[in-house]
Design a protein around this nucleic acid. Structure first.
Lengths: 155, 155
DNA sequence: TTGCTCCTCACGTCACGTGAGGTGGC
DNA sequence: TTGCTCCTCACGTCACGTGAGGTGGC
């Protein structure tokens, strides 16, 4: 799965909801369970224009297209893109074109994100070292205070 | 510098502001520059009860104690503690006691934080791998689209 | 009637960023 | 008078969490 195609459930503009793309419409509960997200998350993504499920009255019905888009969102989230970036990349997708523009944008954003991730890893390594050192010192202080008569006098 | 002592600028409750602890009072601008933070950050930490500078009218004056506390805050932030955690640990500091309780709390929180950091590092490594793979695939698609006559036909 | 699933507000979280509008002393 | 530094609100950011209060169909 690549960061590129939000998928299209065929150009089906059928008005009969239940007939769309062969019955694979799911409600929000099923969608959430299937992809390991909360209902709130799915509603939030819709509010931000990342998903656009059909409606049966007020009930949301997610199509194949929504599932493909959600997979991309989750992949983007995993690699640390903002929802804004993910939306920008997905919105550039055109099933009838070569998507060169979209691919270039994705690549550009990816290079920057990769650099950010590497910086983050360095910062985390620093943090781990700092914290480990601090813990050693604290343990030392605790043992000294527990048995002050045998305490090391190192300043 | 260990995550333990917020420091004390002597028990000086002198009313003469400029006499406190030998003239080392600084205003917010100098404090910010010295520790590489913004004015907003210093005011925010005060609002959250982490710093407590003196006042000359409405102007904040930071003491040695505030400097020691800020160093601890920045160290805590570096290793990923929440401000709430940092405050909890600093508030337990008692210059007249053995601080065993404080040390145990710090150690306990540190162990949990170390585990979180290690998880984070694993997630970042995953993200880096995923993103790198995705980038390779996107580059492949771009070269295929640029020279379709020589495109590889791999599905 | 009870349960389950769905819905729409709308405020809360975390650590600040970013103006707006104003004051004080050289 | 101009500049610089300081001040206090107070809304915005990011990706949701968490109720509150209510509806619909088995």
């Amino acid at each position: 799965m690549i960061l590129v195609s939000p998928g299209e459930a065929a150009a089906n503009t059928n008005n009969d909801i239940s007939a769309e793309a062969g019955e694979d419409l799911v409600r929000i509960g099923e969608m959430a369970k299937k992809y390991g997200v909360t209902l709130r998350t799915l509603r939030f993504y819709e509010d931000k224009g990342l998903l656009n499920p059909q409606r049966d009255g007020s009930t949301r019905l997610y199509t194949r297209r929504d599932k493909a888009r959600l997979k991309l969102i989750l992949l983007g989230r995993k690699v640390g893109f903002s929802l804004r970036d993910v939306k920008q990349m997905m919105d550039l997708y055109d099933p009838s074109g070569s998507n060169t523009k979209q691919l270039r944008l994705a690549l550009d954003k990816s290079e920057k994100q990769l650099a950010r991730l590497q910086k983050q890893r360095a910062l985390i390594d620093d943090a781990i070292n700092e914290l480990s050192g601090s813990m050693t010192a604290v343990r030392q202080m605790l043992t000294e205070r527990a048995a002050p008569s045998q305490a090391s006098v190192a300043g």
